[in-house]
Design a protein around this nucleic acid. Structure first.
Length: 148
DNA sequence: GCCAACGTTGGC
DNA sequence: GCCAACGTTGGC
């Protein structure tokens, strides 16, 4: 899962009560579908810092609550307000995540791009990718952690 | 700050 | 349903 460290980085998550937070504000259908349908309690997730001096994977978190409606879509005062999301039929979903640990070093996008063979068809290193939540296979997960 | 890539919107 | 215009993302 990507986030901009200036807005909400792993240090923010770490200092939240119980070190957990809801992942609100995702307004992309592919990412929404993953949170609504696929991410399960106990799943581990890489925390990726985007739009910053060193974009890359900085830590690990865990899904602690499965997909449920993103209430910020109903709030006209929220910057994530979406009048087209009806509380009776919510358009946007989120999960809750909990901080697990920070990696010993940032595994940068630049690093990851060197391992196209090992990572195969990994969404993160595909050109032009903008998806903010993307699947990681077991083998990709293990390989990435081996770089730590 | 630039700009390529991509998603969404809306006129037709 | 097509597609041009526009907005956003995110690396650099």
């Amino acid at each position: 899962m990507k986030s901009e460290p200036d807005v909400f980085g792993i240090e923010h998550l770490k200092t939240m009560p119980q070190k957990r937070e809801h992942w609100d504000g995702v307004r992309n259908y592919q990412a929404r579908n993953m949170m609504r349908d696929e991410m399960k309690k106990g799943d581990l997730v890489f925390f990726y810092h985007s739009n910053c001096p060193e974009p890359g994977i900085v830590g690990i978190m865990e899904v602690v609550k499965e997909g449920y409606p993103d209430h910020t879509a109903f709030d006209p005062n929220s910057k994530y307000y979406d009048p087209k999301s009806d509380p009776e039929d919510p358009r946007w979903f989120m999960v809750d995540v909990k901080y697990r640990r920070t990696l010993k070093r940032t595994i940068s996008l630049q690093d990851l791009k060197q391992y196209t063979d090992e990572l195969g068809d990994f969404a993160l290193i595909r050109k032009g990718n903008r998806l903010s939540i993307m699947p990681v296979s077991k083998s990709q997960w293990d390989f990435i952690l081996s770089l730590e």
